[in-house]
């Protein structure tokens, strides 16, 4: 973003002549996708992490007399089949989803960058071996491997983070490697080497900096993908352990009772998953669109 700022500064007159309010509006207007994605993401995160403070009802308390009720004053999102407060469970499910999905995305991100960079910067025979291994891993469907391991031991949150992180990095690793290889032969890297910049210095100061936008974009996509993968796992009965829940788990419970048409048990969690993916993708695509303009 600092790039576009610099461009605005450089353009004589242009942006600076207009008033602050107009500029702010212009900023929003040009960046509709990015801004709406950010706003949506902040709302979702507030709901997940601070929702319990505003709506402190217990997500596990069973209100037997009020089981399977549509939304009402007492239960804004109704209750489930055994009488638990659905809104409280939605908040708790969001919290569980986020505390797994975000660290898992971070882990994927770290492994992908380290692996990709290593492949790009080591001698070509090491790169070849690493890439064949990557091809093999890419040929394995991540979720299938996830199901396999998840079925071995009923995973807790920490295990889920590691499972997700360890199975979803190969795609990113290849992207990082290809990008780094295409950047490392550029003239500014050659010039730096002439000044005595070593491999590690070039990777840290130049390659990562040039690749930063594409990496940020992919990180946002990774969060979305983690949320989706986690909900898929929950649907298959391998996600967050009961009585705690996740959005995927809530949705699965609702869908299992579909014959009874419990819309209040299906749509809130479906919408939350949907909104999270939309938010992360809007941010990512918004950044990409801005970069496209900058070029």
């Amino acid at each position: 973003m600092s790039l576009s700022l610099a461009e605005n500064m450089a353009a004589p007159g242009g942006a600076l002549r207009r008033g602050a309010a107009a500029r702010l509006l212009g900023w929003v207007g040009d960046r509709t996708m990015l801004v709406s994605g950010l706003v949506l993401a902040v709302l979702i995160l507030l709901f997940c992490f601070l929702g319990a403070l505003i709506y402190p009802a217990s997500p596990v308390a069973i209100h037997g007399h009020h089981a399977f009720q549509p939304p009402s004053g007492a239960f804004p999102l109704g209750t489930d089949q055994i009488g638990r407060d659905e809104l409280a469970r939605l908040i708790e499910g969001g919290f569980s989803t986020m505390v797994v999905a975000i660290p898992a995305a971070l882990l994927t991100f770290a492994i992908g960058i380290i692996y990709g960079m290593t492949a790009a910067l080591t001698p070509s025979w090491v790169d070849k071996i690493l890439m064949r291994l990557l091809d093999a891993l890419l040929a394995l469907p991540g979720l299938v491997v996830l199901i396999f391991f998840a079925s071995l031991f009923a995973p807790g949150n920490t295990e889920l983070i590691f499972l997700l992180g360890l199975t979803s990095w190969p795609g990113l690793a290849r992207l990082v490697r290809n990008e780094a290889i295409s950047q490392r032969g550029r003239d500014f890297v050659l010039a730096t080497r002439q000044f005595g910049g070593g491999t590690w210095y070039v990777a840290r100061v130049h390659l990562l900096r040039v690749m930063a936008p594409i990496l940020v974009v992919n990180f946002t996509f990774l969060i979305g993908d983690s949320v989706l993968a986690l909900s898929g796992l929950s649907f298959l009965g391998l996600g967050v352990k009961p009585p705690m829940t996740s959005w995927g788990g809530l949705l699965q419970t609702g869908l299992n009772l579909i014959a009874l048409d419990p819309w209040w048990m299906i749509f809130p969690s479906a919408i939350m998953i949907f909104a999270s993916i939309v938010a992360t993708n809007l941010i990512g695509q918004g950044i990409l669109a801005r970069l496209g303009e900058g070029r």
């Binding site: 790039l3 550029r186 003239d187 500014f188 050659l190 010039a191 002439q194 000044f195 005595g196 130049h206 900096r209 040039v210 930063a212």
Partner: peptide, 19 residues
């Protein structure tokens, strides 16, 4: 090597655009 420096053809390519 510091004693021999280089200027390339395309100045945009030879300066890191994010620095």
């Amino acid at each position: 090597r510091l004693g021999v420096q280089v200027v390339f053809q395309d100045p945009r390519e030879s300066l890191n655009p994010r620095m």
